[in-house]
């Protein structure tokens, strides 16, 4: 523990070169609400910590004229909640991020940290997948953009190379009549880890669902996009049978484990329930009622 080096560069290039130069022994520090806990418990022992919170691009929120939001990977939950527009367009993403931890944690916890930590139960990830958000990453060989759904790989592992830094998330512009929602099941009311998490994003035009995307967390080794559920919803009027079919698609893709946090049976069953409830909330928001 005594030999940790700490750097807080102000430019992305510096950060990338320090991070990639350390050849795997470095860790990125965003809010630190996962990293510090893991260091204390001895799970990780970084040789170098690269704090990215002094880099403007990574800590700011931008809204383009055509309605695209670009959210820096290390923007904290509290900061994003204070943005006057983001939550109006992406209430589901915001509620997922704001569910993380407590007030104290909210001052630090970020979307980038939640995603890069690689937990199958990370709360914001299903909402990011449902939102069809794109992640910009930068490494020694430059930038690339990938859909968030391609980031999670397995518990603790992402598709980012160990010299790449998540820079920002971009949220596509959408027509009026669009909204999203996120729900998680926890036995308590807060300070708990999702037993199942479900994000749903919908566009409803003239009572018909024209676009849909569903993300499902904590039911498999990584957060999933449930294409079957989206297929069921698109083109429908979100009637009961349709929603039941979408719920069935969620249950069918579950591949959970029996553990202290929930049984296979329970998680599978609950994924369908949350899908239905999240669709109802998203639809209500989309219709503006």
């Amino acid at each position: 523990m005594s030999d940790i080096q700490y750097l807080a560069p102000t430019t992305l290039d510096e950060a990338v070169s320090a991070y990639s130069g350390a050849k795997g022994s470095a860790h990125i520090l965003a809010g630190g609400t996962d990293l510090l806990v893991q260091m204390r418990s001895g799970m990780v022992n970084p040789g170098l910590i690269v704090d990215i919170k002094k880099i403007e691009e990574i800590t700011s929120v931008k809204e383009t004229e055509d309605g695209v939001f670009v959210v820096g990977a290390s923007v904290s939950g509290m900061e994003l909640a204070n943005n006057s527009n983001f939550g109006k367009t992406w209430p589901g993403v915001l509620e997922a991020l704001n569910l993380i931890g407590s007030t104290q944690i909210q001052g630090r916890a970020s979307l980038g940290g939640n995603l890069c930590n690689g937990s199958p139960a990370g709360d914001s990830v299903p909402a990011l997948i449902a939102a069809e958000a794109l992640l910009t990453v930068q490494g020694p060989n430059g930038r690339r953009e990938i859909p968030v759904k391609e980031v999670p790989v397995s518990p603790g592992k992402t598709s980012l190379a160990d010299n790449e830094i998540a820079v920002s998330f971009s949220f596509p512009s959408r027509p009026a009549g669009s909204a999203d929602a996120y729900l998680r099941m926890i036995p308590r009311t807060e300070m708990d880890i999702a037993v199942v998490g479900c994000g749903v994003s919908l566009t409803i035009e003239e009572n018909t669902c024209t676009r849909a995307c569903v993300g499902l967390g904590a039911v498999a080794p990584k957060v999933l996009e449930v294409e079957g559920a989206a297929e069921a919803l698109i083109g429908s009027q979100l009637d009961e049978d349709t929603i039941e079919n979408a719920a069935e698609a969620c249950r069918a893709c579950c591949n959970p484990i029996d553990d202290k946090r929930g049984t296979i049976y329970y998680r599978t069953k609950v994924s369908g329930v949350l899908l239905k409830r999240a669709v109802a909330i998203a639809a209500k928001r989309a219709k503006g009622v």
Partner: peptide
Amino acid sequence: FLDYRMPVCSD
């Protein structure tokens, strides 16, 4: 306390 679930205030 994450997995040994005592009630929290909001419960």
